[in-house]
Design a protein around this nucleic acid. Structure first.
Length: 764
DNA sequence: TAAAAAATCGTTTTT
DNA sequence: CGATTTTTTA
């Protein structure tokens, strides 16, 4: 290692002065404010290399990244610059994966066992639903989704259910407290942690004793954090604890690219860095190496509309570049076709397809794009969306293995017990689980002693014993059989494969393929290193994302959300769906903060482009299975017009959309009339952007041929709902059978109701 | 108990 | 519209 010290100069040579300063800073806190495309990843990597070359031991370095892929890339580059062994011994990974690893080895100290399961958002939701059933809380009245979100956001703020109890004043919040409490108990009892626990338990671990704290402070003498602007308060606390002794913490971030506030990311983390480390140094990287002057100017002109931001001046020596194309399309299908056509043209001109990315705000938008790409046989890859490991059949297979490893994992157990059908339906499970609770044993144990259960039918008893027997048989083989063979045999005996073979539809053969692919992946995994266990595999899969296995060797166009695009760059970026309500998303209409976050997301999107940008929007878009009229995004107006090639710009300033709205609605209602379905009157999803008051607008063109008991409802009316109780109408939208009311209920808060179903009674 | 039919929802973004 | 949940029926 030492012999390479004299190559220090080599590492620094290709860096600009600021980058050099950042790289060669060894001891003490360091904040790097790094603008988009300023080479921050490069600096981070060179800094790790520099540390190692200055005799810092690789295993004393903790490098926390936002994705597993970023960590892998970093290791790869370190290996190139030093050697593979050193690179492998650096602790590089995401917060979640590194801490999960540590928590496994220290599990007992926190009252878990090392084989704890990791629950993702779907598992969380399923636990919450069970808990709600148990507590007899109506899932109709209180959305499990919403409860999940509140629980998670509390955990992100380090608030326990006890803390939340103090501030919970609405009936909804009080229910959340109940569920929260029971949820935590359930997870603990099933030896499981959710994603938030992986961070929270790390704080708990480090707070356990000075001995433990020092152990990890000394293990991680040098800490580097990428994407610091997107860390939450829990992560902040962990870092503070770890860095306290040696103060060697280097964080890199760009407040302008903070796009995960909704997930608990707290911008204070970056703003308070100087307060927390008064002796810390701050370095700004402001030269952009990625984009053309035009793209950079456009990005800057957009982001300057945000009030909350750290002043900075991003500049570039790159050439001026082409204007940014903006194209209006008739509807989302035409938009997708247009994009496919543009991709073809660019490709014919010599641009590689893998240098093109299409970005969109919501995953749902990928469908139209995929169709048009398939139609033209353009090779593409969708990143994100439904991840491989979130597919039903894959989760089923993994649940068999989870149950093998962690017998307490009820989620896994309930998931697979009747998959394939074994004659153990809801009734049997309820009996089994009630018996388990009564006896104070786990659910799996109550399967084992099913014959003692008086409520269980003979058939179900037999099936329970048989199922438990099968799992136990394989559990005993764990130590003596190679993991991949064990898994394969278990899955074969489970009957899962047989089941899909028998169904033999397109869908089931897809699923079969996926299962085989998983089994192949497992044998590759275990053959690479015979130290690895099934537990390691589960750990890896539960924290894996599709995004991590992106294959750049093939020439394919990339499709992904704007969020997923963070940290990436392409020659050509296409952003689809530049429409009010979609991007920025509808909710941001009501909150300045959310609007600013949307704008930062747009900034992220724009700054992904090296050479060319194309922005598209549609006049009409299918939403909820019906046509909705769209208005171009206000973000388009925020880009200096001289930077745009925008033939339809008039449409923005002349406000064509709004003026023609009435006529459009009338015309579309006429054409829809032909089909005598309940979709007669094209509803107005976008009404909040419509300046014309809805009610008047419709009463004129909508002959009241529809029987509607609630036609006379007005904003401000006090109404009674059969299950939600009393509330006041705060908004009305839509017409005919699709007419909806926004009602603020005393008990459950804001609800959007279809008048056709809701049967509201006017009280005042 | 399980399959088929009907009803009810719901859309951000993800480690 | 499509996915998921609830209800009905065999």
């Amino acid at each position: 290692m030492n012999k390479k010290i004299n190559t220090d100069i080599e590492i620094l040579k290709s860096l600009n002065p600021e980058q050099q300063k950042a790289t060669s800073h060894i001891n003490g806190p360091l904040l790097i404010i790094a603008g988009a495309g300023s080479g921050k990843t490069r600096v981070l990597t060179s800094r790790v290399v520099y540390l190692i070359k200055n005799n810092v031991l690789p295993w004393n370095i903790l490098a926390l990244t936002f994705t597993n892929k970023a960590a892998k890339e970093m290791k790869h580059r370190i290996a190139e610059l030093i050697d593979l062994q050193s690179a492998d011994r650096v602790w590089a990974g995401t917060f979640h994966s590194i801490f999960a690893r540590i928590l496994r080895s220290e599990a007992e100290l926190l009252g878990y066992n090392p084989y704890f399961s990791i629950y993702d958002a779907d598992d969380q939701l399923s636990v919450i639903k069970k808990v709600m059933d148990l507590l007899q809380i109506s899932k109709q009245q209180y959305s499990p989704q919403a409860i999940r979100a509140v629980i998670s956001s509390n955990k992100n703020k380090m608030m326990s259910w006890r803390d939340f109890l103090k501030t919970a004043d609405t009936p909804f919040d009080k229910k959340v407290v109940e569920v929260f409490k029971e949820y935590e108990l359930y997870l603990k009892n099933t030896n499981a942690m959710d994603f938030d626990d992986l961070l929270l338990n790390m704080v708990k671990l480090l707070s356990l004793s000075n001995e433990i704290l020092e152990k990890y402070q000394n293990k991680f003498k040098y800490i580097l954090v990428d994407e610091y602007q997107d860390t939450n308060r829990v992560q902040y606390h962990i870092l503070k604890l770890l860095a306290k002794a040696h103060q060697n913490i280097c964080v890199v971030g760009d407040d302008a690219q903070s796009i995960y506030r909704w997930r608990g990311a707290d911008i204070r983390n970056i703003l308070d860095f100087q307060k927390d480390y008064p002796h810390g140094k701050t370095i700004r990287l402001e030269q952009n190496y990625r984009s053309t002057k035009t793209i950079l100017k456009a990005s800057n002109s957009v982001i300057k509309n945000n009030k909350n931001q750290i002043e900075k001046a991003l500049w570039t020596e790159n050439h001026e570049g082409d204007l940014i194309d903006v194209t209006e399309c008739e509807d989302d299908r035409k938009e997708a076709e247009y994009i496919a056509k543009q991709v073809m043209e660019k490709s014919n001109k010599g641009l590689m397809k893998k240098d093109i990315a299409v970005l969109y705000r919501t995953n749902a938008q990928s469908l139209a794009l995929e169709n048009s790409f398939r139609m033209r046989s353009i090779p593409y890859v969708v990143v994100g969306g439904l991840s491989f490991f979130k597919r039903k059949e894959i989760k089923d297979v993994l649940s068999y293995i989870k149950l093998l490893i962690n017998p307490l994992d009820n989620e896994a157990l309930i998931r697979i017990v009747n998959e394939p059908p074994r004659g153990l339906g809801k009734t049997s499970i309820d009996h089994l689980s009630a018996f388990g609770r009564h006896k104070g044993i786990s659910l799996f144990e109550s399967f084992e002693i099913a014959e003692q259960n008086p409520n269980l039918q003979k058939r179900a008893t037999k099936a329970s014993k048989r199922f438990a027997g099968m799992i136990n048989k394989y559990r005993e083989l764990i130590s003596s059989t190679s993991p991949d063979v064990l898994a394969k045999n278990l899955i074969e005996e489970s009957g899962l494969i047989e089941m899909y073979e028998e169904i033999s539809t397109d869908d089931s053969s897809d699923r079969l393929n996926n299962i085989n692919q998983l089994l192949t992946d497992m044998s590759l995994y275990f053959n690479s290193n015979d130290e690895l266990t099934l537990n390691d595999y589960l750990q890896q899969t539960s924290l894996a994302t599709d995004y991590d296995e992106k294959d750049t060797s093939q020439d394919k166009v990339t499709l992904m959300t704007l969020h997923t695009a963070k940290g990436l760059e392409y020659e050509q970026i296409i952003i689809a769906g530049m429409e009010q309500g979609l991007f920025p998303l509808i909710r941001s209409e009501f909150s300045k903060d959310e609007e600013e976050e949307e704008r930062r997301l747009f900034y992220v999107g724009l700054t992904r482009a090296k050479e060319n940008l194309l922005l598209t929007y549609s006049r009409k878009r299918m939403k909820f299975g019906e046509v909705s009229n769209q208005i171009p995004s206000r973000f388009l107006e925020e880009i200096d017009s001289e930077l745009l090639n925008f033939p339809n710009r008039r449409a923005l300033t002349a406000n064509g959309g709004r003026n023609n709205k009435k006529m459009n609605d009338f015309l579309s209602s006429l054409s829809n009339k032909k089909t005598p379905s309940k979709k007669n009157w094209s509803s107005e999803k976008k009404s909040e952007y419509n300046q014309i008051p809805q009610e008047e607008n419709y009463s004129q063109i909508n002959p009241t041929n529809e029987r509607n008991d609630n036609a006379h409802l007005k904003v401000g009316d006090k109404v009674q709902h059969s299950s939600f109780g009393i509330g006041r109408i705060s908004g009305l939208k839509g017409s005919g059978p699709k007419r909806q009311a926004v009602v603020r209920f005393d008990t459950v808060g804001r609800k959007m109701l279809m008048l056709k179903y809701a049967k509201l009674k006017i009280i005042e």
